[in-house]
Design a protein around this nucleic acid. Structure first.
Lengths: 275, 275
DNA sequence: CCTTGACTCTATACATGGTATAGACCTTAC
DNA sequence: GTAAGGTCTATACCATGTATAGAGTCAAGG
């Protein structure tokens, strides 16, 4: 029954020497013998305990939990823990999937940004059905500037947090101007929204933008929205195009570039048209 | 253009004050003004940068990476990063799924353990098809004791690690004694294995245990294997049952209970029988 | 017996993205 | 003027280790 030095024990068990020393300090795995020079010596059979530590770790338990378990020597509690662990893993997986989805969405938006017509260009684009979550700020943002808009976004952010909606959606926002207002050329709107996934479930505040062809104009600056929107309206009038829904101002990308402190936005103004 | 104190800025952006101070120290988000008393004051428009930080964080980037990005002001690099991020997320999701699966498997094994006949009981059980990954230790472990068995398991562990197989499988191991040997009552085997998932893909060392009814005996101690296996053989002879495959010694659960340093195992010896 | 190289020891710092605390200082409202 | 509450810096802590320095120890070869 030979003793294994800490290095040997570490090597055959694929752990680092430091990890073993940590386990010793934590009382999770004490070496069988410690000699006069405080050298640690392990028994090969202690690998069993190490296996257990590593297994439970793989199952997502913390070292503290593992220690408690091993100290308690109670088999049944492990089962309860594992049941909980399963739920936690499901949550984490759902979380990561949502994150993946928003990475995907962000990438798509970047691609849209790169392939979009330049600032001031007017074009038509077919949009598939889109789902949005609306928030009414009760402030007509067309009466104010960027600062008020930012304050409204902070409100939206708080609202998202309080209602436990995925914050990832916050990176793709927009404003909506209702068709009646637009028809009367009244720039009066208090509603902002976030785009949500098709499969997003929520009881209220959800609207669906139907799939439709939109008349669009690209815009690279917040301050130009109103004048560009008017160009869009003028263009529509000239070509005898009628509207078929609400006017959307979509922030396609918040670019990681700042001019001073202000966000440099790429926004796309959209009016659905009737053929 | 009023200035926001750190507390106000934190509140409207749903961040902690400490986090803002951290971002300041890291140079990730410097307050617009700092007064004579070193009080930090932010501009509401700086929320844009904070949004960006939070978005990129949600996409899984570290603060260091985010800082680099924002300093560089290069849009295109973000895309590359996001592509990488997507792959990383896929990996993490796969990882978590595998973990979930092994939690599930562990739980099933615990339930099997609880509902299994007690030590020494002989019973029949139908087993569905099982997939195993074999490793040849080239040591006949029936010639040695627990220590050698542990050394062989360390070899297997190293093999798993080197071949980048999921370590989670290591918690459900077994040994296999080939039918020919068994027929001649020769306890000679050098092969250990791990149970792997049905959908596990691997080019070599994979075997499938066909679905079959097995004659089994429960055993709560490593040292009793051979004598219990002999009881199983005697029982089969008495009942005129013929074998139809290899003999399996499965470690159903490594219990988080130790007697001294030794693992307390629950093992199930199995012989497929022909009807 | 001595040297050399490899190993081990303790103690400490670092990583991540913050949180929590103490003790001092400052602002704001009454 | 005072009291409440906000802010400051500095430090420690969380978890699970890794990395390092500087000192001590072991085993093998000459």
């Amino acid at each position: 029954m030979d003793k294994l030095s800490i290095g040997e024990m570490a090597a055959i068990n694929r752990v680092s020497v430091q990890a073993l020393r940590l386990y010793d300090r934590m009382g999770l795995l004490k070496p069988q013998f410690i000699d006069i020079n405080r050298y640690r010596y392990y028994d090969i059979k202690q690998s069993a305990r190490l296996d257990m530590i590593q297994s439970l770790q793989l199952l997502g338990m913390s070292l503290r939990q593992i220690k408690e378990q091993l100290d308690k020597q109670d088999v049944s509690v492990v089962q309860g823990l594992l049941e909980m662990q399963k739920d936690r893993l499901d949550e984490q997986i759902a979380q990561l999937r949502a994150t993946r989805k928003s990475v995907e969405r962000t990438l798509i938006n970047y691609r849209r940004y790169h392939s979009a017509p330049g600032d001031g260009m007017i074009f038509t684009e077919f949009m598939p059905e889109r789902k949005i979550y609306c928030y009414d700020s009760r402030i007509n943002f067309y009466d104010f500037g960027l600062e008020t808009y930012e304050y409204i976004l902070r409100e939206l952010k708080t609202h998202i947090a309080l209602n436990e909606l995925p914050m990832a959606y916050f990176c793709n926002v927009g404003t909506i101007l209702r068709q009646e207002r637009l028809a009367r050329r009244e720039f009066i709107s208090t509603e902002v929204f976030i785009f949500v996934d098709d499969d997003f479930q929520c009881s209220s505040n959800i609207e669906v933008l139907p799939s439709r062809t939109y008349l669009c104009i690209s815009c690279d600056n917040f301050h130009k929205e109103k004048s560009y929107a008017e160009r869009l309206l003028a263009y529509a009038a000239e070509k005898d195009l009628a509207f078929d829904g609400d006017y959307i101002c979509e922030v396609v990308t918040d670019l990681p570039v700042f001019v001073g402190n202000e966000r440099s936005m790429f926004i796309k103004l959209q009016i659905p048209i009737k053929f």
